[in-house]
């Protein structure tokens, strides 16, 4: 109990004094996960919307795959990306292993199915009358599709936030492909794992506190969004 309290106090000190090491780790975590989720959204939102709006051969299989990969363990994603990016792997020539870019790629892969599957679900549950209404107001099929997706925009944003929440919380993928290099690929989760292993709990607890605050913030935003999009 003593360790925990000591740790919490030291953690508070680090946070409030804007400790450089701590804040650079936090910043990197947000950057990596942020870019990853933007990439995942750029691909995942159109993909999910497409699955909801158009019939095409293999659509059912794709949706099942997306839903399956929502539960992809991050460490497995990390392993696969590592094998691809390793110098002995097919994409080794790009020299991306142990760089922040590798972490972005791995996290984008993790977030993509989440964003896509949740977008699909959101767009598919839009009232079918929306399409007709848009058409009677002069929308072309493309514009009508835009309108349908727009109707679900709050849920789509929630999907993106869910993806972000998942990526900031994972450690398996970023550890394997990033290498936890000090000042370069060390993020909050890998730091916690390392510092805990070393027994330096203050930094680990501080980072844990920040992660929980982030998680709290996500959930708050999600609730607010759902409230806005909900029933009156």
């Amino acid at each position: 109990m003593d360790t925990i309290i000591q740790g919490l106090l030291k953690a508070l000190g680090l946070l409030l004094s804007f400790d450089r090491e701590l804040y650079s780790i936090i910043l990197l975590s947000v950057e990596v996960s942020g870019v990853a989720v933007v990439l995942a959204a750029a691909l995942g939102i159109p993909l999910g919307a497409l699955c909801a709006l158009k019939r095409f051969p293999g659509r059912g299989v794709l949706i099942t795959l997306l839903n399956t990969f929502m539960g992809l363990p991050p460490v497995v994603a990390g392993l696969v990306i590592y094998l691809f990016l390793s110098r002995s792997g097919p994409l080794g020539f790009m020299g991306l292993l142990y760089t922040p870019s590798a972490m972005v790629i791995a996290q984008a892969v993790i977030a993509l199915p989440i964003v896509a599957a949740l977008t699909w679900s959101a767009v598919a549950s839009v009232d079918p009358a929306v399409r007709e209404t848009a058409v009677t107001l002069g929308a072309t099929p493309v514009l009508a599709n835009w309108r349908i997706v727009s109707e679900a925009r709050l849920q789509v944003i929630s999907a993106v936030i869910a993806g972000f929440g998942r990526t900031t919380a994972e450690v398996g993928a970023v550890l394997i492909v990033g290498g936890n290099i000090a000042g370069y690929t060390r993020v909050m989760t890998t730091s916690i794992a390392m510092e805990t292993g070393k027994g330096s709990f203050e930094l680990a607890i501080a980072l844990g506190v920040v992660l929980m605050l982030l998680a709290f913030a996500f959930n708050l935003i999600l609730r607010l969004l759902q409230g806005k999009g909900g029933r009156p």
Binding site: G34, V35, V38, L39, A42, M94, G95, L96, Y98, T99, P100, S101, V104, G179, Y184, G197
Partner: peptide, 25 residues
């Protein structure tokens, strides 16, 4: 915005030579 982010995320022209030292925990 996406392009801007990508240009930041992807490896920049190697101004720095990164030497990877594999060592033990």
């Amino acid at each position: 915005t996406l392009l801007l982010l990508l240009s930041v995320a992807l490896p920049a022209a190697h101004a720095v030579t990164r030497v990877i030292l594999a060592s033990t925990t």
